[in-house]
Computed example of a mutant assay.
Amino acid sequence: MTTYRFEASLYLWESTQAAWVFTDLPFDVADEIEDAQTGPRRGFGAVRVEVAVGATTWRTSIFPSKERRTFILPVKRAVLDAEGLAPGASATFALTTVG
């Protein structure tokens, strides 16, 4: 397992059903994760990860985005609330791929 540390900005993505907050992985981190993947992937090309921001850690998946040309990381409302974050804010993430 490799841990990647990076700073990234949060952004809001809205659909007709809900609003989600995401951040984009830096291209070099996304390339390393893509190159390290072997075997079949989860649905939608997802990769399981554990993420830490501030004092909060959670497990989720990152998803490839053709539009943004990188993996996107969803950030839960509970994480935003716990860390005082909102769309437009920048945060430091520690992301570890999970088998």
Rank of each mutant, 00 (worst) to 15 (best):
G45W: 09
E83T: 04
Q37I: 01
A19M: 11
F71I: 03
T38L: 01
E32A: 15
R48F: 13
V53H: 04
T60S: 05
R69S: 15
T2E: 14
Y11S: 11
V21D: 07
F93W: 09
I62F: 06
V53A: 08
S9D: 02
F6C: 08
D81P: 00
R68D: 11
D28N: 03
P40E: 01
A52E: 13
A86N: 00
L10K: 12
Q17D: 07
T96V: 04
P40C: 00
R42L: 11
Q17N: 10
A36N: 09
L80W: 03
V79T: 14
G84K: 05
Q37L: 05
F22S: 14
E7V: 01
A52G: 09
Y4D: 14
M1A: 13
A94N: 06
R5L: 06
L80R: 03
G88Q: 01
R5A: 14
S65Q: 08
L85K: 05
W13Y: 12
V29E: 12
M1T: 13
L25Q: 12
D24G: 12
E32G: 15
R42Q: 04
A82G: 07
V79M: 13
P40L: 07
A55E: 14
T2Y: 14
K76Q: 13
A18S: 11
V47S: 13
I33C: 13
L12A: 11
A8W: 04
G88I: 00
A8D: 00
R59E: 00
D24A: 10
F44D: 00
D81K: 08
G39Y: 07
G45P: 13
P87G: 08
E50W: 06
G45T: 15
T57E: 14
P87I: 07
V75T: 01
V29A: 15
R41Q: 06
T70D: 15
Q37V: 10
R41I: 14
V29W: 15
T16L: 10
T60K: 09
Y11I: 10
S15A: 05
M1E: 14
G99W: 10
Q37A: 01
V29F: 15
A89P: 02
T60D: 07
L80Y: 01
T57L: 15
D28A: 06
P74S: 04
T2W: 11
P26H: 13
I62V: 04
I72Q: 12
E7N: 00
